Amino acid sequence: MAEHPHADLIRRGYDAFSRGDMDALRGMMTGDCTHHVPGSHPLSGDFKGLDAITDMYGRLFSETAGTMRVELRRVFVDGRGHAVAMHRSTADRKGRHLEEDGCIVFRIVGDKITDLDECVRDMDVSNDFWS
């Protein structure tokens, strides 16, 4: 049985992110897409539009000197424009190491991502690492 197109979109997105391919990611999102990052650290907040989102992704890589890695674990879809991706993130920054489980809830219209709501297992760990 073939994978649902929304699950395939999310897998391709994680692959593009892992390769640092911002052009591919831009092609998977609507122009007014928003990525919501939880927490109270400098990289948290609502990033609206392709430039804001890809700039934030670039900061993730630059702040971690390229050590940021995200391993996609699972993708769940509902067939109605929602997907949930579970992942494991690792990174090193300023002498600290991050190893964290998280997920992103995606909203998809047609074949494009319109919204990403990120969740982390431990908000304090995330805030400490990125602050």
Rank of each mutant, 00 (worst) to 15 (best):
G20W: 03
R107M: 10
T67F: 00
E63P: 00
R107Q: 14
L43S: 08
Y14L: 01
Y57S: 01
F61Y: 11
D92K: 11
L98T: 04
R74K: 15
W130P: 03
S62R: 10
S89L: 11
G39S: 13
M28E: 03
L60C: 05
V125N: 13
D32G: 05
L9Y: 00
R121P: 01
R121C: 08
K112N: 02
D23N: 13
D128F: 11
R11I: 00
H82W: 12
T54V: 11
G49V: 07
V75I: 12
E118V: 12
V105D: 05
M22L: 15
G31E: 08
V84E: 10
V37E: 14
D128A: 15
H97C: 11
M29C: 06
D117L: 11
V77N: 10
A85C: 09
G45W: 04
M56H: 04
I108N: 01
G20Y: 04
G79A: 08
G27T: 03
A7V: 08
A83Y: 08
D55H: 04
F61N: 10
K94F: 07
H87L: 05
D128K: 13
E118W: 10
G66R: 03
F17V: 00
D8R: 15
M22R: 14
F61G: 05
C103G: 15
C119K: 14
M1V: 09
M1Y: 07
T34C: 13
E3L: 14
L116D: 06
E3W: 07
L60R: 00
A52H: 06
H6S: 11
D51P: 03
G110S: 04
G58Q: 03
G66N: 02
R93M: 06
A2P: 11
Y14H: 10
D78H: 02
D46Y: 07
M56K: 05
R59F: 00
N127G: 07
D78T: 10
R73Y: 06
M56P: 00
E71L: 04
G27C: 05
R121M: 10
D92Y: 01
C33T: 05
E63S: 08
S44L: 04
E118K: 10
C119T: 15
E100S: 15
V37H: 07
H41W: 06
D55C: 01
R121Q: 13
C103L: 13
G31R: 05
S40L: 08
R26I: 08
M1G: 14
D115N: 08
G27W: 04
M28Q: 09
N127F: 06
R59G: 02
A65F: 00
R73A: 09
A91R: 03
Y14G: 01
I53G: 07
D78N: 13
R88G: 10
M123R: 12
M29N: 02
I108L: 04
V70L: 02
T90V: 11
G110D: 02
R26K: 14
S62A: 13
F76N: 09
I10A: 03
D32M: 03
F17T: 00
G58E: 05
H41S: 08
S62Q: 12
R69K: 10
S89M: 13
F61W: 12
S44Q: 09
V84N: 11
A83I: 11
R73V: 12
A52W: 06
F129H: 01
